[in-house]
Amino acid sequence: MLLASLGLLGLTACQPSVQAGLTSGASVDTFHNPLRSNDSPDPFLFTYQHHYYLTYTEQTQVSLYQSSTLAGLQTAHGIPLWPAQCCHLWAPEVYLLPTPAGQRRWYVYYTRDYGVYVRVSSGLSPLGPYGDEIPLLPYGSDVSHSSAIDPTVLTQQDGRLDLLWSDAGDIYIARLSDPTTLASTAHHQLKATRLPASGTVFGCAIQEAPEVLRRSGRFFVTFSACDAQSRDYKLGMMTAQASSDVLSAAAWTLLPRPVFEASVATGVYGPGHNGFFQSLDGRQNWIVYHAKASAGSSYRGRTARAQSFGWTSDGRPSFGTPVSTATVLADPSGERP
């Protein structure tokens, strides 16, 4: 099974899994956060052919870090997917999607200079090669109000695709006629009828970095609230029935409280800009995110981290508390025989 991303996959067959800390003498294979010791903000992680692939913001290029174990990503060498380019390139996400001709190819969606772009692989390797840059929402276009950042893809049950992104601190959605083409210039503000008139959520004026989960006939869209340099950066969540018109703001319900936020007890601050992936055997659900070890206000020090999550009795994802970097964690299931 090709586990390209949870935005592409339904999760009805997944079993709940709750991450637990282990003692350093545990007999199972283990790892600890962060996944990379260097700055690695806006992480996105997917699995393919029994390997993990991690990417994150590197400003002038998009690279993939490949490993057969989650712990191995710490020392993996980045493989650039195309030559470095200018400027301000961030938040890449990689999906295996059908082309208009019915083939399957890898699509890299990313932000460059406050616009949204995509590139397509020429074959079935996520390492490329990739074709030329295709503009989806270039800066200052008629489609975008001002800027367009943090693209992600929602795959509907019938295979139709929608693009979600952030524009001037708000979350938007639009239909894609194919993975590289917006169906129209109309777009809808998901939270327009759900959030306070002041435009703030959890006391934050910024909502960005949407990410999609689908399970048991429901969509869950997480988003990052507040400024990414703040200790208060956190995740909120909206939900919708998968059978509803997800292009309508009325289809979405905003949960009243954050679903993942800083923990003084574990020394984790500003957790946000997340992604989702499954363990290599498809039995566990995991969240990847960036966070800091300092409560100070800075974009520096954001490192990629991961932990598994379970589900509440009413079917919502339950991410728990971001774990300390001192916590020893069991490897995702299916890594080793």
Rank of each mutant, 00 (worst) to 15 (best):
R316F: 08
Y114T: 05
P256G: 14
A251D: 07
V212K: 00
Y299T: 12
T99Q: 08
S5D: 06
K292Y: 07
D227A: 14
Y48C: 00
E261H: 15
R36H: 10
T312H: 14
R231N: 13
L35Y: 08
S146A: 04
S279C: 03
D132G: 03
R283S: 15
L45A: 08
L6W: 04
A262S: 14
E58W: 06
G21I: 13
S144I: 11
E335L: 04
P135H: 02
P100G: 13
H77K: 14
V108P: 05
A228N: 13
T75D: 09
A326S: 13
L136I: 03
A209Q: 09
P80Y: 03
F223N: 04
S141C: 15
E133V: 03
G270P: 12
G102P: 09
R300F: 10
Q74E: 02
A4W: 02
N274H: 07
R119D: 08
H187S: 15
Y65L: 05
A242T: 15
V143C: 08
S318N: 13
W311Y: 13
D42L: 11
L195G: 09
Q74A: 15
A76D: 04
Y65K: 06
S333R: 12
L3K: 01
G140M: 09
G21Y: 03
L9I: 05
G78Y: 03
L64W: 02
T193Y: 04
W252S: 10
H273N: 13
R283I: 00
S146W: 06
G123M: 03
I79D: 07
T69C: 09
D29Y: 14
H187Q: 14
L127I: 12
N274G: 09
A13V: 02
V118T: 12
S40T: 09
Q284H: 11
H290F: 08
Q284A: 01
N285W: 09
T23Y: 10
A262Y: 08
P179E: 02
S294F: 03
S147N: 15
Q61I: 00
V264I: 02
Y56Q: 10
S37F: 11
P138A: 08
V108I: 15
Q207L: 07
A148W: 08
G334R: 12
H187R: 14
S121T: 10
L280W: 03
A209N: 15
Q229F: 00
C226L: 06
L164E: 07
Q241V: 02
G320E: 02
S17V: 01
A197H: 11
T99Y: 07
G25L: 11
